[in-house]
């Protein structure tokens, strides 16, 4: 009882720190660049154009709304990638601070995932713009778009907690994760249509990739205007929760040892 109260008290006490760290991450990301936060919009737009030209034109896969298809996949994936990569480094990167002053350590991981989520939300403006230009009609199913995003957020947080803990003890994790991210990217159907893959009997790749499940459900909501794939929804939510629980338990058990290895 007393302990639970203590945890809640600690949580609220450091709310302000969480807010300040998120603000810092976002503020410093674009400080000293002329266009500043606009890069959050320009960068995915440029990537979308490149990917559309390469895969839409050269390989002749283009439908008119292919750019939206690419953009949705790329935005969600790059949130997952940048959040987990930042989360992975959040503990070892703040070593000097952890060694000197007491702050609940989960704050470092949570703040880096949250700040990436905010940047991601800002970048959704591009999607709205492109969708309007390409006349993607909004439907009632647009209202379910937040569900895959929340699932992806929880998944990123859980993954980050696991990776942050591991990387304190084994610095290799950073490099392994870089390669793993690439694998996830190619298996997430960001710039190729899925039908062909499924037809050739290799659709199982998508059924084991929770990031793709979120992307697919997001596309159903904003691009195709159809109900979400409930199987994907439940499965990806389940995986996200499991990752979060594993991450929290692992982090909680190992956090007192961090300082001895940093």
């Amino acid at each position: 009882m007393g302990k639970a109260k203590q945890i809640v008290k600690n949580f609220t006490k450091y709310n302000n720190l969480l807010y300040e760290l998120v603000k810092k991450n976002i503020k410093l990301k674009y400080r000293r660049s002329y266009l500043g936060i606009l890069w959050t919009l320009i960068e995915p737009l440029l990537t979308m154009i490149v990917l559309t030209i390469v895969f839409g034109t050269f390989f002749n896969k283009g439908t008119k709304q292919f750019p939206v298809y690419v953009l949705t996949g790329r935005l969600l994936f790059s949130f997952f990638q940048s959040a987990t990569k930042a989360g992975l480094k959040s503990v070892s990167g703040n070593a000097s601070m952890i060694k000197k002053v007491y702050v609940p350590k989960y704050i470092y991981v949570v703040s880096s995932v949250v700040s990436n989520f905010f940047i991601f939300l800002i970048s959704l403006v591009v999607l709205v713009g492109v969708a309007v230009v390409l006349k993607v009609e909004p439907t009632i199913y647009l209202t379910q778009a937040w569900i895959p995003l929340i699932i992806l957020f929880v998944m990123s947080l859980g993954t980050s907690l696991i990776l942050a803990t591991l990387s304190v003890f084994f610095r290799d994790v950073e490099y392994i994760w870089g390669v793993a991210c690439m694998l996830v990217m190619y298996a997430s159907a960001i710039f190729y249509p899925v039908e062909k893959i499924i037809k050739s009997g290799k659709g199982w790749v998508f059924n084991i990739n929770p990031v793709y499940m979120c992307i697919a459900n997001f596309r159903d909501s904003v691009l195709y205007g159809v109900p979400m794939n409930m199987y994907y929804c439940v499965l990806s939510a389940g995986i996200a929760v499991v990752l979060l629980v594993i991450g929290m338990v692992l982090f909680y058990k190992k956090q007192d040892d961090f300082i001895l290895y940093l």
């Binding site: 006490k13 450091y14 302000n16 720190l17 807010y19 300040e20 760290l21 810092k24 503020k27 601070m97 002053v101 702050v103």
Partner: peptide, 13 residues
């Protein structure tokens, strides 16, 4: 900015 950041580190509101 650091007054607010470091203050938060020390647990001030």
């Amino acid at each position: 900015e650091n007054i607010y950041l470091y203050g938060a580190v020390l647990g001030y509101s």
